[in-house]
Simulated assay, not measured.
Amino acid sequence: MEMIVSLLPLILMFVIFYFLLIRPQQKKQKAIREMHTALKRGDKIITIGGLHGTIDAVDEEVMVVLVNDNRKLTFDKSAVREVVNPD
């Protein structure tokens, strides 16, 4: 019984860390994965480098982005920070 009482603060700290740090990070990663799989032609995006453009073509791992003056750049899907489609 005394051993359980002495481990209780450690267990409580792990539970608090899980709900404050680990779980929100997992939710955020899941949302990013879902966003990357939902990318489609015509989506307006911002990359992690701050480049704004429109998706012209999407493959399994890469996409072609149209930027100023119809210039095409190829990026990994993981380079997309957010989709900014006006809804």
Rank of each mutant, 00 (worst) to 15 (best):
K30H: 14
E34A: 13
P24S: 06
D56A: 15
Y18G: 07
I48M: 10
M63C: 07
L10G: 08
E34S: 11
L66R: 09
V62R: 14
H52W: 06
I48E: 10
Q25H: 14
V65T: 05
L12S: 14
I16F: 13
G53E: 01
E61N: 13
T54A: 08
I22H: 12
M63S: 03
E82F: 04
L12K: 13
R81T: 00
N70D: 15
E2H: 05
E2G: 02
N85R: 13
V84P: 00
D59C: 01
L51M: 10
K44Q: 12
F14W: 10
V58K: 02
L10H: 11
T54P: 00
D69W: 07
E61D: 12
L7I: 04
R81E: 14
D43C: 08
G50Y: 07
L39N: 02
K30R: 14
V67C: 09
F75V: 07
L12H: 05
G42S: 07
Q25E: 14
Q26P: 01
M3S: 11
A38S: 15
F75S: 01
K44V: 11
E2S: 10
D56L: 06
E61A: 12
V65A: 02
P9V: 04
T54L: 04
S6I: 02
G49L: 09
R23V: 10
H36Y: 10
A38F: 05
F75P: 00
I45A: 03
K44H: 14
F19Q: 04
M35W: 02
I45P: 01
M35R: 04
P9F: 01
N68I: 07
V65P: 00
N70H: 12
I11P: 00
N68W: 08
L8M: 07
D43L: 06
L51A: 06
I45W: 00
K72H: 14
L73W: 11
V67A: 02
K27Q: 15
L7A: 04
R23A: 14
A57I: 07
V58H: 06
V65N: 01
Y18W: 15
A79F: 09
K30Q: 15
L8W: 04
R81S: 07
D69H: 13
L21M: 09
L39Q: 02
L73I: 14
K44Y: 12
G49P: 03
K72D: 01
S6Y: 03
F17C: 11
V5M: 09
V80R: 01
P24Y: 08
R71W: 08
E82D: 11
R41L: 12
G42D: 09
G49I: 03
A57K: 15
K77Y: 06
L20R: 09
D87C: 05
R23F: 14
V67R: 12
M1N: 05
I11E: 07
R23K: 15
L21F: 15
V58Y: 02
H36G: 04
L20P: 00
K72I: 11
T54F: 05
